[in-house]
Nucleic acid binder design. Structure first.
Lengths: 230, 230
DNA sequence: ACAATTCCAATTGTCAACAATTTACAATTG
DNA sequence: CAATTGTAAATTGTTGACAATTGGAATTGT
């Protein structure tokens, strides 16, 4: 009974990466809300780290769009804008559509089984009427699809998109309104299309679904912006 | 005659950003070829900068996939792999397709004029038989389409994709083989579809075209990898 | 009273030194 | 001769101090 030692390898995790994790969590949990100014010296003191390490952490977060750097002037959790929401949801629809297409092109019985299992979780949650769980399994299905594509960059990009969508949902305090039956039906036809290798249909269904979600949020933010400009 | 001073505003460009520009150029020009190890101390000496500043520059380049960080062990220009090429081209097709769809949905006479002008440059280059120019204007059309969408994130993402495709082309020393007439025809039908607002057709054509390009490069790299594994 | 200028504290950007980890190679052991 | 250990050099990660920039308050000028 051999344990393969290379699978137990420990990876040292540098302080700047750890600091980025902590700051990311503060942002995603709402403790650092959109528009919040991030001061290096304060963060360095709070984290008991050197300011240079904090700078490195903040820079990492700029590439996740969780932080914006204003050179020589500071760092900021970006305010939520309808334009940003639109960009986020269109990109989401594009990436989810691409993933569905690629998965359909590379489908196998084993992959189909994984996908159907993931879909079943969504159906169960919808039948329980558990909106939070439905939202989670909605993301879960798409993550499964992306895993099936074995496309590492797509996984990375999707992770960033997902984080940001969660941020918008938390900050706007909206759980998006959706019809539970409709969600399950849409995903069923998408899962079917993928499993029988129909790439263009799978893509079409996948992107249509997230487009509808996005419009609700964009409208909400547009109204909010119109109110604030008076 | 008033010159609007705010349009002349100078933006201080920090040394780390400047260093990133220099290193990026070295990578894209082939001076730091795929697989090349990047040593902080050497770069710092060559650029007459502090090593911390170079670290910051390298970190910026990791988010463009031009550099990979191996924590505690170094930085590397990533080797070119067929898997990486596949991911790059599929992502390109997805983003170009999304851009075509969004542009078609938001088309106006002014935008159509811009797009047709861009297309005309491609046609002229094809008629001259100038392959380099055709390749440039191929990118040029897609950049125009993305500008028409007014989608900032898409522009950012496409820029990174474009850089990397240029890197693959330079490093593999292949100018992709393509039929000049076919290129012009494909782009004509795509431009038509966008200008008359046919979003799904525009997307379909856009993504099919870059998929074909990508397959050639992926095949080339797979053969190269098969040779090197003996 | 208002605009322009100056001053200074707060903050960001960079640096060189110290700390920590990895690599390569020589020496030792089995 | 192969495997293991030890160690110095190379390199990466972090730090605190100095340099540079910005924004807002105070002062000056009209």
């Amino acid at each position: 009974m051999e344990v393969k030692l290379s699978s137990l390898a420990l990876t040292p995790r540098s302080l700047d990466h750890q600091a980025a994790d902590v700051i990311r969590q503060q942002i995603l949990s709402g403790s650092f809300p959109p528009g919040h100014r991030l001061i290096e010296t304060q963060l360095a003191e709070a984290l008991d780290l050197s300011r240079g390490t904090v700078r490195s952490a903040l820079q990492q977060l700029t590439y996740e769009n969780l932080v914006v750097q204003l050179p020589y002037r500071g760092w900021l959790v970006p305010p939520l804008r309808s334009q940003g929401a639109w960009e986020l949801y269109t990109l989401r629809s594009g990436l989810e559509g691409l993933a569905a297409r690629l998965a359909a092109m590379a489908i196998s019985p084993e992959k189909a089984t994984l996908l159907e299992r993931s879909f079943q979780q969504l159906v169960d949650a919808a039948q329980r009427g558990d909106r939070n769980a439905v939202n989670e399994f909605d993301f879960g299905i798409h993550k499964t699809i992306i895993q099936l594509t074995e496309h590492r960059r797509l996984q990375q990009q999707y992770k960033i998109i997902e984080q940001q969508i969660r941020l918008y949902i938390t900050a706007c305090n909206t759980l998006l309104e959706f019809d539970l039956t409709e969600i399950a039906n849409q995903h069923q036809s998408m899962v079917k299309a993928i499993c029988c290798g129909n790439a263009s249909l799978a893509q079409q269904i996948a992107q249509d679904h997230s487009t509808a979600d996005g419009e609700t949020l964009v409208n909400y933010l547009q109204e909010s912006e119109a109110r604030n400009s008076k």
